[in-house]
Simulated scan of single mutants.
Amino acid sequence: MRIPYSPTLRLRRLAAELKQGRERSDLTVSQAGKALGWTASKISKIETTETRRITAGDLDRMMDLYKIHEPSKRQAMHALARDARERGWWSKYKEIFGSQALPDFEAEASVIKSFQALAIPGLLETREYAEAVFRGGRYTSPDEIERRVEARITRQEILTKVNPVHFRLVIDEAALRRTIGSPDVMAGQLRYMLHMAELPNIDIQVLPFSAGSHAALVAPFSILEFPDHLAPPIAHVDAVTDSVFFEEPDEVSRYSATFGDIQGTALSTAQSAQFIAEVLKTLEEEA
């Protein structure tokens, strides 16, 4: 059974609650460690999430020291600790997603804002399109390609689950014009995008060539927003070797401002659907 939440975000929330509890008790890291008979390093590693597993006994001792006595609060923090120990489905694809797995954060995002310039984003790819993408790279083993496609398709469940993520995509015209696989594969991909754009939680806007210069003449990026109680927004950029996450508020704000600018430059969702339909018609005529 796939867990419907992010263990990493649950751990971060727990760590933040414990740090706030220590600070409300006017204790330094060293003082808290001494009171518990622990090293300051142990407290620090818990608060910075370097320690991923916190035992129930250790958690109770910390809450006692920080005077967190409310039963519902203690139960909630124990629940966070249990959730943080779980392993998401993406853990078996570590060689694909890297040490910080994007699906870990996507699992609990309430909104994902994404700008894509070169290809259809993984969350909206058909299986045939994804296979063609990986065949065009350095992946030649059929088994490896299938494994990567499987991981990519599984990510898409966040769009159709109960309480799905709201996906807001701005996509450059170039990604629609570049034929990946074959005209038939590309036509199937565009039909699928039009189908998904009809869902109430998915907004697709096209940034046409006619827009000229715009604010996002940079690498594609995504911004993930979470329920208020869980975590602040983060920005994500795919790199050749790994994913890069930006979490500092000023960095995320710049990406958010850029996304707002290109949303204003792009076609409306209705105009974009018509634009995609016209590109699809041209493909079908050429086939």
Rank of each mutant, 00 (worst) to 15 (best):
E128L: 12
M186Y: 11
D184V: 03
E173R: 04
L80E: 08
L65P: 04
A132W: 07
E150P: 01
I145T: 02
R147G: 00
I68K: 02
H78P: 04
D64I: 04
E131L: 05
D172T: 01
Q189W: 03
L123V: 05
E144M: 08
T49G: 08
L123H: 05
E86I: 02
S114E: 13
I68W: 00
S91E: 15
H69I: 11
R147I: 00
P183W: 00
G188Y: 01
S44V: 02
S99G: 05
F134S: 09
I145Y: 00
V133L: 14
R52E: 15
V165L: 10
M62Q: 07
D60R: 11
K45M: 10
K113P: 00
Y139Q: 10
S141V: 03
D172Y: 02
I54H: 00
S182A: 11
Y66L: 07
P121I: 10
E157A: 14
P71S: 06
E50M: 15
R85E: 04
L169R: 03
L59G: 01
Y93Q: 05
Q116Y: 05
K113C: 07
M77Q: 12
S91R: 15
S110R: 13
P121Y: 09
K94Y: 09
L190R: 03
T140I: 05
G137N: 13
G137S: 15
S72T: 10
S110Q: 12
G181N: 04
N163Q: 09
W89P: 12
G57Q: 10
T140P: 00
A187H: 03
E173M: 04
T49M: 13
T179D: 05
R155G: 07
R52H: 12
S182H: 09
R178K: 15
E70K: 14
Q75T: 10
L65W: 05
L102R: 07
E50D: 15
V133S: 10
E50N: 14
R61C: 06
E47Y: 12
L65V: 05
G98A: 12
R53C: 09
H69P: 01
